[in-house]
Each structure stands twice: as structure tokens, then as C-alpha cells.
Design a binder for these strands. Structure first.
Length: 216
DNA sequence: AAGAGGATGAACT
DNA sequence: GTTCATCCTCTTG
């Protein structure tokens, strides 16, 4: 079992923009497992470890908002270079946080779907209206965005400086393939055969990933 | 100007 | 297992 206290002590380093500029959004989604999402708004800092992601790949992925190069005010940020936030409202209620990836005009993004909460749990609980720690604190994309204070107003925010109010960090820990489960993406059945693409990644054994039986 | 529907989560039975 | 809250974005006219 992972010891969260150990992780608090570990030195973490910013993920630079280079990390997000590659064409291979599926590979980036895989690589983001175990990285840290950090937010810092008005000096209030919260941190969680990413344990579930999904890749959405620009023009040829019917599940992606930028399918067929569909370009609207909402999706515009995906057409820029990687390293920016794409946050949109889902079902009128939930703010879903994505990291744009790829070079300019490759409208790809990685949806962050679950976190293990790590720092400043009281603030995260308060944002969620919860009284004590439980999986629903950050085990889904809408929940984690709320816990981290991420809002659609942050769409377009650059993520790759140490001053960014939202950023991603790495502590150097390596996650072997055997620790990571690959599956089809959630909630995209409207996307035809694209719905079967194995572009979802999650950390085996994490109590913060919903449903798909956490073994052990 | 209006209508449809969604990359979810919570609260039910 | 089911329902539904809730509102923005996009499409259509």
C-alpha cells in the first residue's frame, strides 16, 4: 500500500511544456499516471496524485470535442500548443479538467479523471462539502475539479511555469506497466467504434478509482 | 431566438 | 439497478 506521507516528503519538479508537446496523446495520458496536479489560488494550495486519465485525440476521434477539426470558442484552446488547461462544463454542473497536448493544430487533450488527495485535505473536503475523507472526494473528473478549485474560467490557463496557479509536477517515481490498467473510455458510447479505443489508464489498486474492481 | 443534449455525480429503489 | 439536477455550448432557423 502506498504511503501518502512519504510522498509529501518527496521533492517534486514542474512538468515543463516539452512534456505536453508530443503528438502521442495516448502516451502522455499513460505517462501522467502518478504525476501530481497542484493548484494554488490566493495562496491556498492543494495537491493530488493523478491515478486515472483518458486520451482524446483531435481530428480522428469521434469522442473528442475537436473531432473533425471542429473549432469553436470552447475548443479553441485545444488547437494551440500543449501545456494549457481545457476546462469545460458537463451536464451543466461539472467542470472537467483536461491538459491540452500536442503541437499547434493537433487538438489533443488528456482528461484527468481521478486523484489521490495528498495535501490540504481540509480545503479539498470543504470545496466538496464533505466532512471526512472518502473516495468521492476526488474519484471522478467532476469531483476532482471541484476539490481542486478548478473552474471553466481556468480554461486556457498555461500550466507549465512554477507560478501557474494550476500545474503538474513529477517526483520521479516510475510506474511499471504492470501497475497500470488500460481500458476503454467512460461515457463516450455515442462515439461509435472510437468508444472502444483503449485510451483510459488507471492505477491498479487505487481506492480513488471508481468501479473497475480494484484488485487486492 | 429557441431547443437539444452532454467526457457526471448524487440520491434514490 | 434508475432518475435527474442544471446550464453552457452549439446548431438550426
Amino acid at each position: 500500500m502506498r504511503n501518502l506521507q512519504d510522498n509529501i516528503e518527496k521533492k517534486r519538479f514542474l512538468l515543463g511544456q516539452d512534456f505536453f508537446l508530443h503528438e502521442d496523446v495516448v502516451g502522455i495520458a499513460r505517462a501522467l499516471i502518478g504525476k501530481y496536479l497542484v493548484t494554488e489560488f490566493d495562496g491556498v494550495r492543494t495537491v493530488g496524485r493523478i491515478v486515472e486519465t483518458e486520451a482524446y485525440r483531435g481530428p480522428d476521434d469521434k469522442a473528442c470535442h475537436a473531432y473533425n477539426n471542429r473549432r469553436t470558442r470552447r475548443t479553441e484552446v485545444m488547437f494551440g500548443p500543449g501545456g494549457y488547461a481545457y476546462v469545460y462544463l458537463c451536464y451543466g454542473i461539472h467542470h472537467l479538467f483536461n491538459v491540452v497536448t500536442g503541437p499547434e493544430n493537433a487538438p489533443h487533450a488528456v482528461l484527468v479523471r481521478a486523484l489521490e488527495p495528498l495535501e490540504n485535505l481540509p480545503v479539498m473536503l470543504g470545496r466538496r462539502g464533505l466532512l471526512f475523507e472518502q473516495p468521492s472526494l476526488s474519484n471522478g473528473p467532476g469531483a476532482l475539479s471541484q476539490a481542486m478549485g478548478i473552474h471553466t474560467r481556468h480554461s486556457g490557463q498555461f500550466l507549465c511555469t512554477n507560478e501557474s496557479p494550476i500545474r503538474l509536477e513529477d517526483d520521479g517515481e516510475f510506474f511499471p506497466d504492470e501497475d497500470i490498467i488500460i481500458s476503454a473510455r467512460i461515457g463516450v458510447q455515442y462515439a461509435g467504434t472510437c468508444a472502444f479505443r483503449p485510451w483510459r489508464f488507471y492505477l491498479k489498486n487505487s481506492p480513488c478509482v471508481r468501479k473497475p474492481k480494484n484488485k487486492t
